[in-house]
C-alpha cells in the first residue's frame, strides 16, 4: 500500500534527513529548530522507527510477530503492552472494516507470486483461505495464540503508519513545530512550514512512477495512500495487486489508489486500505468515516472530497 509521494522542496524547508526503513525510502523534515536540537530529535525519531521495525518485522526470526507465528497451533505467547495494543488495534480494524482488514491474511502471499505473474488456481486459494480469519485468533490476559499450524499474523498493514505516528509524537514532544515524517510515502505532518504555509505532498500517478497525479496541501495531520502499484503484475489487461480480499483471496480492482487525510497516520492508512478493500463502495465507506480523501478509480478518474488538491 505504499504510494511514493514526492515532497516539493522549497526554501524554508529546514533540515531534511533521508533514510531507509520499513522497506522504503523515508524522510524527515524539521524546520525552525536550532541545528543541534534538530539533529538530536531526528536521531531519536529515526531510532524509534527502526525500533518499531525490528520489534514487529515478520522477516526477523527474533521478532514478537515471528515468535507468535512460529508457535501457531502450539503454545500461548506472552506479549508486552505494546504488542497487545497492536493486537487490540487489529481487532478494532477488523470490526470497523466488516472483516476486510485482517492481519491474518498475509499467508495468501504464498499463493500470489507477483514476480511470476500468474494467477493462482481456485484450489490453491481454497487451501489457504481456511487459515485466514482474525476471529480465530485466541487471546487471553496478555497472551495470544494462533490455533492452527500455518496461520500467521502480520502488522505490515499499519506498522509503517504506527512508526510514523510514534516518531511524530516524539518530535512534537521535543518541541518541533514545523516539519513532517514520511515513511515510504505515508506522511505525518507535524506542523506547517515556518511561515505558516502548508506542505505540498505529491500523490504519485499509479500508472506512471515518474509523474505526480496531484498535490495535496497539508498543514497538520497525516496523509496516507493505499494503491495497486506497489507490488503487482498485469496479465491480459487486468491488474493483479497485493491488496487481497481476505474472503475471496483475490486482489482488489476498483481503485488505483486511495489517499486519506486524517489526524493520525494509522487512521489515514487504515481508512485508505479499507476503502481499497471495500472496492465499489469504497467511497461510501470514506464518506461515512467523514475523512477527506483523494482517490483514482480503475479508469483513471479522480474522486475527491474536502481536500486541498491542486
Amino acid at each position: 500500500m505504499v504510494a511514493q509521494p514526492t515532497i516539493d522542496a522549497t526554501r524554508d524547508a529546514g533540515m531534511t534527513v533521508e533514510f531507509n526503513a520499513m522497506g522504503g525510502p523515508c524522510e524527515l523534515r524539521l524546520a525552525g529548530l536550532p541545528a543541534d536540537s534538530a539533529n538530536r530529535l531526528a536521531r531519536a525519531a529515526i531510532e524509534e522507527v527502526h525500533r518499531v521495525e525490528a520489534k514487529f518485522s515478520r522477516y526477523r526470526a527474533d521478532s514478537i510477530v515471528s515468535r507468535i507465528n512460529a508457535a501457531a497451533g502450539g503454545k500461548w505467547i506472552a506479549c508486552d503492552d505494546e504488542t497487545n495494543a497492536l493486537l487490540d488495534y487489529s481487532d478494532a480494524m477488523h470490526a470497523a472494516s466488516d472483516g476486510l482488514f485482517d492481519v491474518t491474511s498475509g499467508i495468501l502471499r504464498r499463493a500470489w507470486d507477483f514476480d511470476r505473474s500468474s494467477v493462482p488456481s481456485a484450489a490453491r486459494l481454497a487451501e489457504l483461505l481456511p487459515l485466514v480469519g482474525w476471529t480465530r485468533v485466541q487471546r487471553r490476559s496478555g497472551e495470544v495464540r494462533l490455533p492452527e499450524r500455518g496461520m500467521e499474523i502480520d502488522f505490515g498493514g499499519f506498522g509503517k503508519e504506527y512508526a510514523a505516528d510514534r516518531a511524530a509524537a516524539l518530535l512534537l514532544d521535543g518541541g518541533a513545530l514545523y516539519g513532517l515524517v514520511s515513511l515510504g510515502g505515508d506522511v505525518r505532518v507535524l506542523g506547517p512550514r515556518p511561515d505558516g504555509r502548508p506542505w505540498s505532498i505529491g500523490i504519485q500517478d499509479p500508472r506512471d512512477p515518474g509523474r505526480i497525479a496531484a498535490h495535496i496541501e497539508v498543514i497538520e495531520g497525516a496523509l496516507a495512500t493505499s494503491g495497486d502499484y506497489e507490488r503487482y503484475f498485469d496479465l491480459d489487461g487486468q491488474r493483479y495487486c497485493h491488496i487481497l480480499d481476505p474472503h475471496s483471496g483475490m486482489p482488489v480492482a476498483a481503485w488505483r489508489s486511495v489517499s486519506v487525510l486524517a489526524p493520525l497516520t494509522v487512521v489515514a492508512g487504515g481508512h485508505a486500505t479499507v476503502a481499497m478493500l471495500k472496492q465499489a463502495i469504497g467511497l461510501n465507506y470514506l464518506d461515512s468515516a467523514g475523512v477527506p480523501y483523494f482517490s483514482i478509480d480503475a479508469g483513471g478518474h479522480f474522486h475527491y472530497k474536502n481536500i486541498g488538491k491542486h
Binding site: M93, D165, Y285
Partner: peptide, 29 residues
C-alpha cells in the same frame, strides 16, 4: 475530475477507527 455522487450513508463503523487508534501507545504527543 469527477465529483463523487451522493450516496446513502453507510453505518458509521468507520468512525470507530480513530477511537481505536487513539488507544495505541505513543502515537500522540
Amino acid at each position: 475530475l469527477t465529483r463523487p455522487p451522493k450516496r446513502a450513508e453507510e453505518k458509521p463503523k468507520a468512525a470507530l477507527m480513530l477511537a481505536a487508534a487513539l488507544a495505541l501507545p505513543g502515537v500522540l504527543p
